[in-house]
């Protein structure tokens, strides 16, 4: 798979896909999309990068071990649920806040934190499997 065309395109394709995955993640609350599908797109972006340029550059690029990324996602997900203890509502209740930044009203919620957690869990878990398989393929 190490053709010149693929190797030169892959980094751009990967960055586009990661950007798109974040877009899908953020639009997911009321429109089709969300953490899970966004995570899948990001994980396939990493897989493409790995196929084109080898696994070591991917591991360098994401800096953290994929399992640590997915653990952080799990932490965010569970933490978003625990936030509701401060509002004395049941676990996992969506909490909303509407700060105004630069004149734009921004809807932030614990649901978003949870969704980012799902995104990271999926990215970490799938990337961990994909990278392990690609590594095995090489030797």
């Amino acid at each position: 798979m190490r053709t010149v065309i693929f190797r030169s395109i892959a980094p751009y394709l990967t960055s586009l896909m990661v950007l798109f995955s974040i877009f899908v993640l953020l639009r997911g609350h009321n429109l089709p999309g969300g953490g899970f599908i966004g995570g899948l797109i990001a994980a396939s972006a990493l897989a493409i990068y790995g196929i084109a340029c080898g696994v070591a550059p991917v591991r360098r690029a994401i800096h953290f071990h994929p399992m640590a990324i997915s653990a952080f996602g799990l932490f965010l997900g569970a933490g978003a649920g625990v936030l509701s203890v401060f509002a004395s509502v049941p676990f996992m209740t969506g909490l909303w806040t509407y700060p105004t930044l630069f004149g734009v009203e921004l809807a932030l919620s614990s649901v978003l934190v949870f969704d980012i957690g799902v995104y990271l869990v999926v990215v970490g878990a799938i990337a961990s499997i994909a990278l392990a398989l690609e590594e095995r393929d090489r030797d």
């Binding site: 653990a71 952080f72 676990f91």
Partner: peptide, 19 residues
């Protein structure tokens, strides 16, 4: 009611990060 499960998930994920 929910604290035991939340605790396990939170601590489990921290331990996974500090593997």
């Amino acid at each position: 009611i929910v604290a035991p499960v939340a605790l396990c998930l939170l601590v489990g994920s921290v331990l996974l990060m500090l593997r």
